[in-house]
Simulated scan of single mutants.
Amino acid sequence: MIHWNYLLALEQDIIRVADYIELSEDNFNTYSVELLKLNLSIGSEIDVVLKLLCEAYSPQEKFSSIKDYKNCINDRMPDLIIESTSIPRYNLEFRPFNEIGIDTHDGYHSPSWWQDYNRIKHHRNSDYKKANLKNVLYSFSALLLANLYLVVKLNQLKNIKDLYKHVNGFPKLFDIGEKYKMSMLIW
């Protein structure tokens, strides 16, 4: 599965960044060209994976924007809104889709990391500082969860732990939670 392999490659890039920038809330506002590249790569892949995910849930519908994805998530996979990932080594936890569930007078709210991705994509000169560590970590968490949901949906998995049979490798830095982990019995 190409999207899963790309996810793991992006995580390796984040691991390399961690050699230079401590993955800490104290450094969330740190920005750089390398973080810009990661923000743009991850944001682009999120767009691709969310579109595939929504089309898997509703093949008859067309999805072309974050607004379409938000509606699909809220209507067809609301559990995604409360899902989280973590980086135990640095004591960090992320709920990247949490903001999607917030209903405003204009409809559902876009996550701040998505808004910032679009700002650095379209207004890089004025919004370069938004290409920061926080947005990389939150958007990668969103990509990880979207990929998990896509693998589960495309393979019609009844038991989420069967995920291991359908992907080649798992994240090394990010933790996906106990419900996705295969239980290992030691004899």
Rank of each mutant, 00 (worst) to 15 (best):
L143Q: 03
N29A: 10
E34Q: 08
N71Q: 09
E178D: 15
L185F: 15
S32C: 04
D47C: 04
H166C: 12
C72F: 12
L38S: 02
H122F: 14
T104L: 05
K165W: 09
I120F: 00
L150W: 14
N39V: 14
S64P: 04
R89Q: 08
K51E: 11
Y128K: 02
S32Q: 03
S64K: 13
L154H: 13
P111D: 01
D19F: 05
V136I: 13
E61C: 02
F94N: 00
K179W: 11
R124T: 10
E83K: 14
S112M: 05
Y20A: 05
T30I: 13
H105F: 06
P78A: 08
Y138D: 15
G101S: 03
I73M: 13
R89D: 06
D68I: 09
L50G: 00
H105D: 05
N168G: 08
V48D: 03
Y117S: 03
K67F: 07
H123G: 02
K70A: 13
D116P: 03
W114Q: 01
K130H: 07
Q60F: 02
Q60Y: 03
L38G: 00
N98A: 01
L154N: 15
N39H: 08
N71I: 09
S65D: 08
N147M: 11
H122P: 13
N125Y: 14
S110I: 03
F94C: 00
D68L: 06
C54K: 04
P96H: 03
D68M: 07
I176Y: 14
K37A: 12
W187C: 06
F94G: 00
K70Y: 12
N98M: 02
V48W: 02
L137W: 01
L157C: 10
S44P: 03
Y164V: 12
T30Y: 13
L185I: 14
E11K: 06
Y117N: 03
I82E: 07
E55K: 10
Q115W: 08
V136A: 05
F97Y: 13
Q12M: 04
F170A: 08
R119D: 11
D47N: 11
Q60P: 00
H3P: 08
P111K: 02
L92W: 02
A18R: 10
F97Q: 01
D47H: 12
I14G: 00
N74I: 12
N159K: 14
I160W: 15
I102K: 04
N125R: 13
Q60K: 06
F63E: 07
I15Y: 08
N5K: 15
Q12N: 09
